[in-house]
Simulated assay, not measured.
Amino acid sequence: MSRTIEDQTVEELGGEGSVLVRQRRDHAQMDRLMDRHQALEDGAERERVLRELVQLVFSHAFAEETVLWPAVRRAAADGEELTSRVEEEHQEINDLVTDVERLDPGSAEREEKVLRVFALIRQDIRDEEDLVLPRLQEALDAGRLRRLGAAWETVRGSAPTRPHPVVPRRPPGNAVLGVPLSLYDRLRDGLEPGVSGPWGRRILAGLTGLLVSGAVAVLVRKRS
């Protein structure tokens, strides 16, 4: 029976650079941010913590879908079933966070959706650490886990940091669209809250439209 990665040592998981160690470290940070958010009263710091969590969750998930889940599907006989389950969780988180970003801070509806997002993130962490990642550990030696970790870190460092309904959950579509959307997200992350007005939002919306249109054209050419 596969053993969860939750309570294994760094050495058992393949060493400091292993993708399993990197994944678990991100998961622990997500838990800390969710706890921090819930401990704070409404205000700017609570919103800052939520933004930090969202940025971490979406860059982390993008790196999983681009680098890790294809490796799981190649390595495990049940990899398709396992990764499809996690991808469904990611999509539900994506949709809920999109709703959260449209609602006013402090509203009851927004708070309810935030709590649902947190519950899904925690369920996703358990599914990954208890079910999916142990299958990868069974199939790959420590050296390959560290090489996969380096690739995961590279993708994570340049991944989108916001929800985007247009992004597919699997390569090559996510990789092609991820590049322009990552640029857009990081511009938005760096400029907020200064781009909170209507003109700022229109400029950013126009920019992302141009970037995504170009990426879609590239994707269509690749498929044809």
Rank of each mutant, 00 (worst) to 15 (best):
T154L: 12
T98K: 05
E128R: 07
A175M: 13
L131M: 10
W152C: 04
R156V: 08
R73C: 06
H60R: 01
E109Q: 11
L140W: 02
E88A: 11
P70H: 03
A71C: 02
A175L: 15
R102A: 10
A159E: 00
A139Y: 11
A63T: 12
R116F: 04
A76P: 02
D95L: 12
L103Q: 10
L145P: 12
E89P: 13
I93M: 13
L136M: 08
V166L: 15
E129T: 02
L145C: 03
E81C: 03
E109W: 04
A63L: 00
D78N: 13
L133P: 10
E89W: 09
L133W: 06
F62T: 15
P70Y: 09
A142T: 07
G149E: 01
R122N: 14
P165Y: 08
P165A: 15
E88V: 14
V132I: 15
V176S: 06
G173R: 06
D78S: 10
D99M: 09
L133S: 05
R126A: 15
V117T: 04
T154I: 05
W152R: 10
G178H: 12
L177E: 09
R85V: 01
D95K: 06
Q137D: 15
R135C: 08
R85Y: 08
R102C: 08
D127A: 12
D124K: 12
T66Q: 14
I121W: 07
E87T: 10
V167I: 10
L131H: 04
N174I: 04
A142I: 07
A108W: 05
G178A: 05
T66E: 05
D104W: 15
H164T: 05
E111H: 05
V166W: 04
I93Q: 14
E129M: 11
V167R: 07
A139K: 06
A159I: 03
L96W: 02
R170K: 15
F62P: 11
R169I: 13
D141F: 07
D124P: 03
P160C: 05
S84L: 06
L140M: 05
A151M: 06
R110P: 11
R102Y: 03
R147L: 02
V132Q: 00
A71W: 01
A71K: 15
L140Y: 13
V114N: 00
V100D: 06
G173E: 00
T161A: 09
A142K: 03
L133Y: 15
A77I: 13
G173F: 00
A151W: 02
G106F: 13
V86H: 12
A150W: 14
A142W: 01
V166G: 06
T161W: 00
I121Q: 11
N174R: 09
A75S: 11
K113M: 09
D104N: 08
A77F: 08
L145G: 13
L177C: 01
E153N: 07
